[in-house]
Structure formats: C-alpha cells, structure tokens
Simulated assay, not measured.
Amino acid sequence: MSLDLDTTVSITRASLASDLVAAGVTVVAAGLSPGSSGNLSVRATDGTILITPGGAVLGSLDAERLAVLDADGEWIGGDKPSKEAALHLALYRKNPEHRAIVHVHSPQAVAASCLEPWAPNSALPPITPYFVMRAGQTPLVPYRAPGSPELGELLSGLSFPFHAALLQNHGQLTSGRNLADAIDAAVEVEEASRITLITTGKERRLLDEREIADLTERYGSSWTPVNR
C-alpha cells in the first residue's frame, strides 16, 4: 500500500528532525557551540525548513520542539524559530542546492571576525587545502545586531559565490548539501581561523592561485582570484 503525501512528509520531517538533533550533539562535541549559542537548520526537498528554536542548547535539542518554516520562510509549527532565521533563508537562496546550515559562535572564528578581512572575497586567507576544499572563500559580513534582517540582506548583496561566511564580531555561518558537509565546513572555518590568528604578523606561506584552482575544481568549492 502506498503512503499518501501527508504521511510521506511527516516521515521525512521526522527523519530530518532526528538528523538535526544528532548534528547538535556533534557541533557541541566539536567545541563549536558554547552555551546556548548558535543555530542549525535543514531543508526538505519540498522546501520545508526545520530550524532550532531561539535559545536552544544545541547539545540537547528536542525533536518535537524544532521550529518548522514553510518554503517561504513563514513559521508554521513547533517552537518559535531562532532569531537568525532570515540569515539561514538568505544563505539557502544563495546556494539553492544546499540542504543544511550551521551558524555557531565558535571562539576562533569569532576572534577572526574581529579583525580586518584578509581580502574582499575572504576574511581568511587560503591557509590550508582543507579550508579551501571544504569551506572555500569566506567573506566577512559587516556587523549588524544578532537577528537583524539586514544581516541576510548584506549576505545576499555579495555578488560572488560562497557557502561560508564570518559575521563581524559575531561568529560563522556555513551551508552544505547535507548536515555533515555543513559541519565539516564549520570545523574547517574554525581551524583556519585558529591558524590565521597564530600566524598573524609572521611571514606566511599561503596556497597559490594554481593550487587553489586545482582544489576548487576537484572539490567544487569557490575561490575568486583577487588583487591585494
């Protein structure tokens, strides 16, 4: 007997909710989400989005209380969504093939977001192959208060491709084709931030344009050559 559409949607949503709860545990275990900071979301094939509620502790999420947004971003179920929902929606629009977003206040990325950006296309330099492969260029989004709709507007206004960003004096944001990819990107942003901070003021050897082009072609990440 075939399942009707409503039943199929319910099963899919339950599966995504379980994935989101597990992702929250992973993010906390990786040291990316202190306290009740940060938020996660995942998008179903019908455009429905599950996002963590405001003030939720990512390591102890309740699948039954996750906020549900429709394809237009309207709140249609669960607890009240994170105040950063507009930021998630903007990054989904930027990367329509992506199904998951991680926003965390990881300490090294926050510290790096307080510095002047390395270049217009990336706050962080091409310092490791894994950063270029899994995160790619990571622009700095200018400061606005957390939850401000302007954050999403500023992100959308950046014309070049990217799926990771630093939010000035705030944290980091990554998207991926699934939660594992988005988390991997967040881990690499944190690590690249750490290495950038400890090598600041020293003579650094960065990946060159040929090495970057090879990685982006092989792994599908983005890096726009710039004159600095």
Rank of each mutant, 00 (worst) to 15 (best):
S113G: 05
S222Q: 14
A164F: 04
D70G: 04
R134P: 04
L166Q: 05
A17V: 01
L140R: 12
I49R: 02
E217G: 13
S36L: 10
G220M: 04
T48I: 01
E84P: 10
Y130E: 15
P225Q: 04
A30W: 00
W118M: 10
I76N: 10
N227C: 12
L179D: 04
S221L: 04
D79T: 08
H170V: 06
L66V: 10
I51P: 00
T200Y: 00
P161F: 06
T48L: 04
S156K: 08
S41T: 02
V57H: 12
V42G: 02
Q108H: 13
R194G: 05
L5T: 14
G176C: 05
N95R: 15
L50H: 08
R134I: 06
D6S: 14
A56W: 01
A182D: 06
D214L: 12
E74H: 14
A14L: 07
S159K: 15
S222V: 11
Q108V: 01
A186W: 01
A109Q: 05
P146W: 03
Y130H: 14
S60Y: 00
I11A: 13
P139Y: 01
L197Q: 02
A63L: 01
H170N: 09
A180F: 07
P142M: 03
S82R: 07
V42I: 14
K80Y: 05
L207V: 10
T199G: 06
H163C: 14
V25N: 10
W75Q: 12
R204K: 12
